[in-house]
């Protein structure tokens, strides 16, 4: 597969939105992969956090928005804490989630109707509140 890269793709709208919402400079990333190396849930991600940054920067927007990565991220901040460039990668993930969740149509990433009574009964409220805040439009 080849990709065409131009000024337009490198400065794509999603990248700029992500930079604005996260307050992070995507160009600062030098792709060392430390975020992916230390991420406790990267085993379940289809793109590693470092790839998400790269794809966003190069304008591979549809791949990024289709990836499960921001929705697997648990905001544990291990990546943020060890990034040698001081990037707050957890904020980049949050920005990507908001790009999706702030669209006009509802794009929920938790299906409330599918939550079982057993789960609701056992789960502490904070899990629902934080989950809903992260994953519901």
């Amino acid at each position: 597969m080849k990709i065409e890269i131009s000024e337009k793709s490198v400065r794509n709208e999603i990248a700029r939105t992500v930079e604005w919402v996260s307050g992070q400079n995507l160009f600062a990333c030098y792709q060392c992969g430390n975020c992916t190396a230390g991420c406790p849930v990267s085993f379940a991600m289809d793109l590693g956090p470092h790839q998400v940054i790269r794809y966003t920067l190069l304008g591979l927007v549809s791949e990024v928005l289709a990836s499960n990565t921001p929705w697997i991220c648990a905001s544990c901040l291990q990546c943020t804490s060890r990034c040698p460039k001081g990037l707050d990668i957890a904020r980049i993930m949050e920005a990507l989630r908001t790009v999706v969740l702030r669209k006009k149509e509802r794009l929920d990433h938790i299906s409330i109707v599918d939550l079982t009574d057993d789960l609701i009964d056992r789960t502490p409220q904070i899990a629902f509140i934080s989950g809903f805040r992260k994953f519901l439009s």
Binding site: Q31, C32, G33, N34, C35, T36, A37, G38, C39, L47, G48, H50, Q51, Q78, R82, P84
Partner: peptide
């Protein structure tokens, strides 16, 4: 890629790294 963390794991040292070429 970089290594995020090292720790003693029994007699060995667990290395958590990444190969960004395979991602």
């Amino acid at each position: 890629g970089r290594v995020s963390r090292l720790f003693q794991d029994g007699e060995q040292i667990m290395v958590w790294g990444v190969d960004t070429l395979t991602a």
